[in-house]
Design a protein around this nucleic acid. Structure first.
Length: 705
RNA sequence: GAGUCCGUAGCUCAGCGGUAGAGCGUUGCAUUCACAUUGCAAAUGUCGGAGGUUCAAAUCCUCCCGGGCUCACCA
């Protein structure tokens, strides 16, 4: 053996061998109980980042269970990542001087599809570099035709059961990206925005958005506000930038008497609150801002101006006409921004498909309350409950082409909608909805659609559903995990997973969130090159409690690398002593004839007996830690024991009194350590193991007892 | 505005009711006999602050201070 461990000579070769032998397939343990984790599908177009590297936790669980003899399935997949990917592609188009509007739907979709296909293998190879024991033969993609079919089916069934409806209402619309977003996909930002006090005939009201005044269809006051009681129910005459007009005064509970003047303009087409007020009072909807972000006919001479320009122009005009009483320049308002392009989102009225979430959320809450799903760390349960309890209906229509097109068809004759499982309805002329599903609508079905669509093994769904654990970053609790619970329960009648396990984020060495814009992103692949995958994995797990964020630590990586080297040299010592003590050639040092109990029988020396006991104790500790998802405890304990108990004390002791028996005991105990370490550091442990026990793999039914 | 997490050795973090821990760093000594080293030993903390509960609190409760993250349709 070489004097130091060199991961570069080992990792690629080992992984290739594992795959070739089919070790990652659950079928290698045909008699075992099923154990299944579905990999959170990375963006097919993306690159490896630390969120993915944290999936190490899943590999630890899978390897541990596989070693224990479970039929362990870790199912990989990739997500088309709708708006995310289309956004990247449009940027590319822009760089080439083109735009999405230059292409028809099919062409654009085809181009993005091809573009993604070119990148898709990348992320998969990167996951392999981390040593992940994923069953690649079962890999799925959200745009696979069988997945799409199942997603369509879900939508149809929800529609048939009254959970899907089409409605005309305000959506958060990005006029730059040309699509609406769900409530989750917004960034809220506080900004200084002038608050204008505008004269409306005899009244004065405060607003940050004077340019929407063309869409006002009422002015509202609080029902108990004595100041304005005499106006309620009447029409008042007002002077506007476009001349004289009349407007109704209404009374509504939602008005805050203490804000501004206690008078609000009601613009049902451009404000969420006003939309509700408008509904209550049967107000007319006047849309004055178009989906292109420009003012339309209602704005008179301001037509064609972008919202920002229009605001400036309107304010100027009002000032001239003496319609502005005062301006509070320091007013702080909260804006909703597009999470992709950071522009201000416009609430615009649009017909969309919505999912009635209440009945689904109730079931999802119940599943956790009843303990059918456990969440670790448990404090995330509160966030889960809180969100589901206050959930509003889910807008699932996206006005982009990159995604699964909604199987809804509108009759050209009657204008009525028909939902199918994907095929065009017959009989008359139909027009398909041009929108696609919110990405989370398909990924929210991931656990059951992946298992159902794996035709290679028809019983995957029966066997592995509900899956054992869903492990992911806590940032996906709402967008993804809660949706999986809701949709999984709805379609299958059972929870999609029994346990949710959250890991934290990996920040940069200074504790700052890694982001491209800050330029502090570290590519895990570089670290794998430098320290080896085992060390990266170990460093991510060691010294960090489950679910907590951590800062990338080069010291920790270095420590893990040294640990790997230590492990290597322990093996080297054993290898070197082999010839000295063993007279007859022993090929397989891990012969099943020397499990712990048998060693105990040949053990005579007091120190050997003690060490055997200690190792046994260690084994049960590690087993317990893994069963309770305390990966950091397990890693720390293994590190401590291997180095400071086993190497520093025991090997030093045996060194001076080595004979055939003590050698066999030492080797057997060392092999136990290797096995306990294998889920954490798969490459080096397998490499060493195969040197001691050729033709075998450390990962098959080898967990020590 | 609400929620949530964090504040423990120089740094990064474990510990979460019973005499303060790890890694890295620091300081000695030993060693090249498995270990581009390793081993042995040492130093370092009123466990963010103030109250409270308890025989006992870094650990539970309350408040405050500092930092992170998340959520939220007040014009």
């Amino acid at each position: 053996m070489e004097k130091t461990y060199n991961h570069k000579n080992v990792e690629g070769k080992i992984y290739e061998n594992w795959e070739k032998k089919g070790y990652f397939k659950p079928e290698i343990n045909p008699d075992g109980k099923p154990y299944c984790i579905i990999l959170p599908p990375p963006n097919a177009n993306g690159a490896l980042h630390f969120g993915h590297a944290m999936f190490t936790v899943e590999d630890i669980l899978i390897r541990y269970h596989r070693m224990k003899g479970f039929q362990a399935l870790w199912l990989p997949g990739a997500d088309h990542a709708g708006i995310e990917t289309q956004f990247v592609f449009e940027k590319k188009l822009k760089a080439e001087g083109k735009s999405r509007l230059d292409f028809d739907r099919e062409t654009l979709y085809g181009m993005i599809y091809k573009y993604v296909e070119e990148h898709r293998g990348g992320i998969e190879n990167q996951l392999k570099r981390l040593g992940f024991s994923l069953d690649w033969s079962r890999e799925k993609y959200t745009l696979d035709s069988d997945i799409v079919k199942l997603v369509h089916k879900t939508f149809k069934r929800m529609y048939d059961e009254g959970l899907v409806y089409r409605d005309f209402r305000l959506v958060n619309y990005c006029t730059f990206d040309g699509t609406s977003f769900s409530d989750l996909e917004l960034i809220h930002e506080e900004k200084e925005r002038p608050l204008y006090y505008i004269k409306y005939g005899p009244l004065t009201l405060a607003t940050t958005r004077p340019e929407t005044k063309f869409g006002d269809t009422a002015v509202a006051v609080h029902p108990t506000d004595l100041r304005y009681k005499k106006y309620v129910g009447k029409e008042i005459e007002i002077e506007t930038v476009l001349g004289k007009a009349k407007i109704k005064v209404i009374a509504d509970e939602s008005v805050d008497k203490n804000f501004g003047t206690g008078v609000v303009k009601i613009t049902p087409s451009h404000d969420f609150n006003d939309f509700e007020v408008g509904k209550r009072h049967n107000l007319e909807m006047k849309q004055v801002i178009g989906f292109d972000g420009k003012m339309n006919d209602y704005a008179g001479k301001f037509k064609g101006l972008y919202v920002k320009e229009a605001r400036r122009a309107v304010v100027e005009e009002m000032k001239k006409k003496g319609l502005i009483e005062k301006i509070d320049e320091k007013y702080i308002t909260r804006l909703s921004l597009c999470y992709k392009c950071k522009n201000v989102l416009e609430p615009l009225p649009l017909e969309q498909w919505f999912i009635k979430v209440k009945p689904l959320a109730e079931q999802a809450i119940k599943a956790v309350r009843d303990g059918k799903i456990k969440i670790t760390p448990s404090n995330f349960e509160n966030i889960y409950f809180q969100w589901l309890e206050n959930l509003r209906d889910w807008n699932i229509s996206r006005q982009i082409v990159w995604g699964i097109r909604i199987p809804a068809w509108k009759s050209k004759k009657t204008g009525k909608w028909v939902i199918t499982e994907g095929e065009e309805p017959k009989g008359q002329e139909w027009e398909q909805d041009t929108d696609t599903f919110d990405t989370w609508f398909s990924s929210g079905q991931w656990p059951f659609v992946t298992l159902m669509s794996n035709s290679s093994s028809k019983s995957d769904f029966e066997k592995f559903y509900p899956t054992s654990v869903m492990e992911t970053g806590y940032d996906l609790l709402r967008a993804w995990v809660s949706r999986m619970v809701m949709l999984g329960l709805f379609i299958t009648g059972d929870v999609p997973f029994k346990h949710v396990l959250f890991h934290g984020l990996v920040n940069d060495p200074y504790g700052k969130k890694m982001s491209k814009s800050k330029g502090n992103v570290v590519n895990p692949l570089e670290l794998i090159d430098k320290y080896g995958a085992d060390s990266v994995r170990f460093a991510l797990v060691y010294g960090n409690a489950t679910g907590n964020d951590q800062s990338l630590s080069y010291q920790k990586l270095e420590a893990a690398r040294k640990f790997a080297n230590k492990l290597w040299n322990m093996a080297r010592f054993i290898e070197m002593k082999r010839k000295d003590v063993i007279l007859n050639e022993v090929k397989d040092l891990d012969s099943s004839a020397t499990p712990q109990n048998d060693i105990l029988e040949i053990a005579q020396h007091k120190n050997d007996i003690v060490m055997i006991k200690k190792t046994k104790q260690l084994t049960s500790e590690i087993t317990n830690h893994l069963d309770s998802y305390s990966f950091n405890y397990a890693a720390e304990k293994l590190y401590e024991f291997t180095w400071h108990e086993f190497a520093d004390k025991y090997i030093e002791d045996v060194k001076n009194r080595i004979d055939e028996d003590s050698y066999l005991i030492l080797t057997a105990l060392y092999l136990i350590l290797l096995k306990l370490l294998h889920p954490f550091m798969p490459f080096i442990t397998e490499e060493i193991y195969q040197r001691f026990s050729p033709e075998k793999s450390i990962m098959i039914k080898s967990w020590p007892e």
